[in-house]
């Protein structure tokens, strides 16, 4: 996973998900919004179960907690939407990413996964880009591309699939 080694640092946005601190590559983030009215998409997978209007564009809203197997609580006053650009099947696409909290834009230094057996064990490894080190804390930097990998998504078992209600 970790392609940058040694002393190089990475600029990230740190965010809170279900009480844990994660980070994503800051270069992906276009803007950060407070919670706005969102539109549920009936029948969509719960990871991307809604839409929102970002400056006149209709943008899907993704909830990373679903992919990370976390409990999905309703939004609070601290909830934020990170508007990011990801590549879907080769096309750059704007999506919203839901976070319980956004802390700061910061620089983290690389750390080896081996140093963090506890973190490395808890999350699906292919969703982790690397582990960043900040002071004594370790922060998981998410592999956003894999988070939205459609093949991955469609392969995943889905409980919220649309069902025809019996007549």
């Amino acid at each position: 996973m970790s392609q940058w080694m040694g002393n190089r640092t990475l600029e990230v946005v740190t965010l809170g998900l279900d009480g844990e601190v994660f980070a994503i590559d800051a270069i992906l983030v276009h803007e950060i919004l407070e919670m706005v009215p969102i539109t549920r998409v009936p029948g969509a997978r719960s990871f991307v179960g809604s839409l929102l209007n970002v400056r006149g564009k209709v943008v899907p809203l993704a909830d990373p907690r679903v992919r990370l197997g976390m409990e999905c609580r309703p939004p609070t006053i601290d909830s934020r939407i990170l508007v990011i650009e990801v590549e879907l099947e080769g096309e750059p696409t704007i999506v919203g990413l839901l976070a319980d909290k956004v802390f700061e834009v910061t620089e983290v230094a690389a750390a080896a996964l081996e140093e963090t057996p506890r973190l490395g064990m808890r999350w699906p490894p292919h969703l982790i880009r690397c582990v960043g080190k900040r002071g004594d804390d370790f922060i998981i930097v998410l592999e956003i591309g894999r988070l939205f990998d459609n093949a991955d998504l469609f392969g995943a078992p889905e409980t919220a699939a649309p069902q025809l209600l019996s007549a």
Partner: peptide, 27 residues
């Protein structure tokens, strides 16, 4: 008409979305 992203390619009930006067999104 705004088309839906590939993330919603599996949702067959909707052909797109649009933005309403109050800024909300309707499918």
């Amino acid at each position: 008409i705004k088309s839906l992203s590939r993330l919603h390619a599996d949702v067959e009930s909707f052909s797109g979305a649009t933005i309403l006067g109050d800024g909300g999104v309707a499918l």
